[in-house]
Amino acid sequence: MASFVAKKYQTLAPTVRTLASGVPVASGISFRHAPADDHSHGGPRHDTPALFAVRFSGSAKTSYVTSSPTGVFQQRFLHTSVARRDAPQVPDFSHYKAKDDSVNRATSYLMIGAMGVLTASAAKSTVTEFLSTMAASADVLALAKVEVGMSAIAEGTNVIIKWRGKPVFIRHRTPDEIEEARSIDWKTLRDPQSDEERAKNPEWLVMLGVCTHLGCVPIGESGDYGGWFCPCHGSHYDISGRIRKGPAPLNLEVPEYTIDEGEGKIIVG
């Protein structure tokens, strides 16, 4: 139907006039209901359905003028007292029209895509910047690693250092202690963990000195298993820092650390 109307050329008489009083009059329109008209929607009018001058195709909205104004065209202003009877001439827009539709279309998509790329890039940088403000600041990170000289710790002694505000136990174990830690049947323990998992180098045991029960600091070289003993509620840890007796649910935590054999240093953190 649309194409039919679009291609039909007719000379139309103006249907809407303005009286001298300013009241618009549409004398050519029948307000009667047309019973024979199948397309009527039951309303009082059976005008031509609204046909918009612009059709959209794709994203590159090419506009098509479907019908050139024929006959007398009446310009209507907000104030209707002035009647205009001149026929407007449609200006020549061909200069502004795209020379090549496919190039035009690709360019438009490309520009919009480029805007998307730049926006996404800028947004990503912005979000990263904001998120990085939540990260630890440089002065905290500078304190996050602690180095301990291994030569200063004799075999069979404990050293307690502070790392991120918590005590860290470092024990230089004797061969007997290693033997003891590795020989027991660890699979039956409360928190089953082998000594190989807990100590990178069997001679050196590094762990956080915080009882896993309620956070007290256990005492070294004491308890029923020759390891650590928490005085608060009586948790006994063995020489590998594993919970053996008492209320604590877990073994003493092993922090992240590296052993630098060349420099003779343990770096916690």
Binding site: V5, L12, G28, T48, F52, V54, S63, T66, S67, I112
Partner: peptide, 22 residues
């Protein structure tokens, strides 16, 4: 680009010509 079609378009009212136009 987005405004081009809106700014260049022309809305034309096609008055009905009769009862059995279509």
């Amino acid at each position: 680009f987005k405004w081009a079609s809106l700014k260049a378009r022309k809305i034309i009212y096609n008055p009905p010509t009769g009862k059995n136009m279509h």
